[in-house]
Structure formats: structure tokens, C-alpha cells
């Protein structure tokens, strides 16, 4: 469903991604792991149209989306849960969700999708009138994921969902992501928690200084010294 072919991208003079080729098939869960500064977040931002592609191609369902703007990509069924959650702190939980379903096509199904999100994350239903900034870190992450689900995406991009969460919360979060997966969403996840993320996904890529170094099925990768590589970067 998602294909990157030889993508190079960066900010100004600086190149953060070199010739990245990556695919995510429908129904799959795929992880991108790598040390800090490897370009993982840039990769996510390239896919959601926030960072323009310099060379190469981005294809969704076979159609090229290189050079398209973020809202067009969201409209095509890709939702980005940005790093650091980036919820709207002064809006209420419900308003945040409403913004997630902003596009006209998803606005029509608002009641239905919001119900599904509340089923998935009951704590959000309890706090719907609360300002999002007053939620705990874990709840904010749920809200960020819920907000992404509001656009009825086919593919969800999760950028470091466990960042800054207490260890016990990280476990719960992964459990929730597993449930999101079972709902039939395709997932592309960037994570530092390599061990845990490998138990969640089908395949994984190792990104190092802007290049894909290793690629494979997560079961195989877990056996190799992949984990050490991802952390230490050698």
C-alpha cells in the first residue's frame, strides 16, 4: 500500500535521508528502528507530506504522491501520530478528536468514528470535556492515536509512541497498539524500544545515518544482534 523508492530528503542544505526504499503492505505492521538522529522522524514526515521529497518516489496504492501536501495525503488514508504526541493542549479531548476528523469525508462519519475511538480508549470518553493538556502522558498518547484514527486511515504512522512514558505505561501502550492492529489498520511504527516493537510487528527496517541498513522479518531479526545494532549503531 505504501512504497518509497530511492527517497532522498532533508532540510535546507542538510540531507537526512539517502536513497531510502521501503514498502508496507496492506494489513502489515512494520517497524523502523535505529539510533537517535538516524532520520526516523524525517522518514515519517516525508511519508505524511510534511517534508518534501528531493529525489525518488512516494507511492500510495500504486499512485505517486511525491510533492503532494499533507492534507492530500491524509485524505488518501494516511494518518500521522507525530513524535511527542503534539495534541492541542488547550482544546478539550473531544475537540482534539474532532480536529482529527477534519476532512469533509471523515466529518460525515464523525459520530461513528468517535464511538470507535472511545471503545478503544475508554479513558478518553471519561475525559472528553477535559482540556487535553491536563491528561497524563499515556492518555495524551492515546488521544494522539485516537485523533489519528478519526480520519479513518488505512495506514497509521506512529512516531515514537513510547517516548517519555513510564515503563508500565509503555507496556499498556503496546497492548493498545496491538489492539489497534487487530482492528485491521496497517501500521508503520518508529520506536526506540526495539525488543518490544519487534514482538509487535511483522517486519522491520534498521535505519542508520539516513540509510536503510538491514531489513527483514521481525522473528529473524530478533535472533540476530539486530537489537544491539539498533541501539549502539554499529
Amino acid at each position: 500500500m505504501l512504497e518509497l523508492q530511492g527517497v532522498t530528503a532533508g532540510y535546507g542544505e542538510f540531507t537526512a535521508l539517502w536513497d531510502v526504499t521501503l514498502t508496507v503492505n496492506a494489513g502489515e505492521a512494520v517497524a523502523v528502528v535505529g539510533p537517535n538522529g538516524a532520520g526516523k522522524t524525517t522518514l515519517m514526515r516525508v511519508i505524511s507530506g510534511l517534508v518534501p521529497i528531493r529525489t525518488g518516489d512516494l507511492r500510495l496504492d500504486g499512485r505517486s504522491f511525491a510533492g503532494r501536501r499533507a492534507h492530500e495525503i491524509v485524505a488518501h488514508g494516511i494518518a500521522h501520530v507525530p513524535e511527542g504526541r503534539r495534541i492541542f493542549p488547550r482544546l478539550t479531548v473531544e475537540e482534539n478528536l474532532k480536529m482529527g476528523g477534519f476532512l469533509p469525508a471523515s466529518r460525515r462519519h464523525y459520530a461513528e468514528t468517535v464511538g470507535r475511538v472511545y471503545d478503544l480508549f475508554p479513558v478518553l470518553a471519561e475525559r472528553r470535556r477535559q482540556r487535553a493538556g491536563t491528561l497524563s502522558g499515556g492518555e495524551q498518547q492515546m488521544l494522539a492515536i485516537g485523533r489519528a484514527l478519526m480520519s479513518k486511515p488505512k495506514l497509521i504512522l506512529l512516531d515514537e509512541p513510547s517516548l517519555g512514558l513510564a515503563p508500565v505505561m509503555v507496556l499498556r501502550l503496546f497492548e493498545l497498539i496491538r489492539r489497534v492492529r487487530q482492528e485491521g489498520y496497517t501500521i508503520l511504527i518508529v520506536e526506540q524500544n526495539v525488543r518490544q516493537v519487534l514482538s509487535l510487528v511483522d517486519r522491520a527496517y534498521l535505519l542508520e545515518v539516513g540509510r536503510i541498513k538491514v531489513e527483514g522479518r521481525s522473528a529473524d531479526l530478533a535472533e540476530q544482534d539486530f537489537v544491539r545494532k539498533a541501539y549502539v549503531g554499529i
Partner: peptide
């Protein structure tokens, strides 16, 4: 609502599809 979201966090607003 869209502009409020943009005012709070432009990147986040763009990432959820607000033009």
C-alpha cells in the same frame, strides 16, 4: 476550530490533514 488548532501547533495541525 481549524485556526485554533493551527495556532496551537501548526505541525500537528498539518499532520492531521488541516490545510
Amino acid at each position: 476550530s481549524a485556526l485554533e488548532a493551527i495556532g496551537e501547533d501548526e505541525t500537528a495541525a498539518a499532520s492531521i490533514g488541516i490545510p
